[in-house]
Amino acid sequence: MTTSHDYPLIRCKGLTKHYRKGRQTVTPLSALDLDVPRGEFLALMGPSGSGKTTLLNLIAGIDRPSEGILEFDRHEIGGLSRGRLARWRAAHVGYIFQLYHLIPVLTAFENVEIPLLLSGLSRRERRERVENALALVGLADRMHHVPSELSGGQEQRVAIARALVTDPPLLVADEPTGDLDRESAASVLALLQQFSAEFGKTIVMVTHDPRCADAAERTLHLEKGKLLEAEEAL
């Protein structure tokens, strides 16, 4: 019998995504099967156009599959309405972008607080959570700085704090070190490893960089919308 703990947090069965580009139908992801166990740090690699970001977007619930099943914690999320999917994301997913995507006119504190504004938390509770999240990424002393006053590495750490602040079980990261120098990239990866190991976060990370993928527990390779077997990937 499969217990709730054994059952993968994310299960994809025959996951397919089509979209129209002019008169053509493009299929960046085709009949993909994937299980991601709870607490795993998974890296997705592949060349441009291989479908890794499409898969990440489907897993993060910011896009919907054309066919197939996408389960999160035994619940099908592929068919949720836009509103329900948004509420699901707010509760279950922290998204880390390659280009940080902080809101330029807001301070680090305010950027991290954004996901909490739609929660029922009081101002004091929100402040505590934001301060903890910023302290966790080592930016407690930068919370009143706007993004233009921070380095790239610091901006990405603010973005990580923003992804973490709601304490979601799943973190998805799209090339989180792609725009960083080596030192900053290493510190970001160390943080992700820490969240996986210490807090049991399930992390799905897309990367081009094999050194970055080394930080993950498991690496999967995609090509033309399909997962490659281990030996193929080699």
Binding site: A60, I62, A86, A90, Y95, F97, I114, P115, L118, T166
Partner: peptide, 12 residues
């Protein structure tokens, strides 16, 4: 789009 990614529904 970022706000929506962070869980803001269209109505927000």
């Amino acid at each position: 789009a970022i706000l929506q990614t962070l869980g803001y529904p269209p109505v927000a």
